[in-house]
Design a protein around this nucleic acid. Sequence first.
DNA 1: CCGCATCCTCCCCGATACTG
DNA 2: CAGTATCGGGGAGGATGCGG
Lengths: 128, 128
Amino acid sequence: MKPCDTHDTGTCQRISEMLSRIGDKWTLLVVRALGRGPRRFSALRRELGSISQKMLTRTLRNLERDGLVIRTVTPTTPPQVEYALTTMGEDLFGPIAALADWTITHADCIDAARAAYDGREASIQRAA
Amino acid sequence: MKPCDTHDTGTCQRISEMLSRIGDKWTLLVVRALGRGPRRFSALRRELGSISQKMLTRTLRNLERDGLVIRTVTPTTPPQVEYALTTMGEDLFGPIAALADWTITHADCIDAARAAYDGREASIQRAA
DNA sequence: CCGCATCCTCCCCGATACTG
DNA sequence: CAGTATCGGGGAGGATGCGG
């Protein structure tokens, strides 16, 4: 493939911005959870385990702002708020799956590279 | 497509880790530059413009540790250090291109969603 | 030329407490 | 149940200076 089809620097920054969003601590997990179907706030919280309310709220807000998630409020008491992926949000699974496949197929190779690198580091320490 | 083929949570974290790496401030730009061919440290520095030495060094070290980039030192005076993508590093362009395409094709949609969201925010401010 | 060490700043994120 | 407000630690990242 052409190695430089990531286009101009401006577009590259845009892509980087998206990668930062998806690559932050919780977004991918939230998107994955919502990929299995709409969820209420607390359901997401339980499903993700260790996330704080603040970060779940922030993550969902960001996703909502980018049009990847839609937020539906039912003003009852107690209130019900449901989150669901938009079509655009579901489209994200395609590219993510590509990255996921790459990661999985190269995981061993990466681990080996890290072990080799860290081993070299350690031997440098010993030499000193 | 199946929306939940991002596998188990452990694998998901692994993918997230990779996304964080690629999604950090400089990695994608560095990889893209190296995709056009091997580069020396200073050449990368000039090409990327505003990156500090510290961050360029750190970024390259991380890539090297993960086996995506190889570092070749020629011990002359002054020393020459050349960086190049490994095969695994070049393989990354496939998945990245998928994400890049998604980002480009959805850029307008994201901008519209953000404008709508921010517009709503502003009107809430006025209402208060 | 390459890269490490130091200092400083800002923001991410968690913990906690409080509203409707 | 859903969300906001506040505080605090820690890491990312820039600027500068030194060393090989």
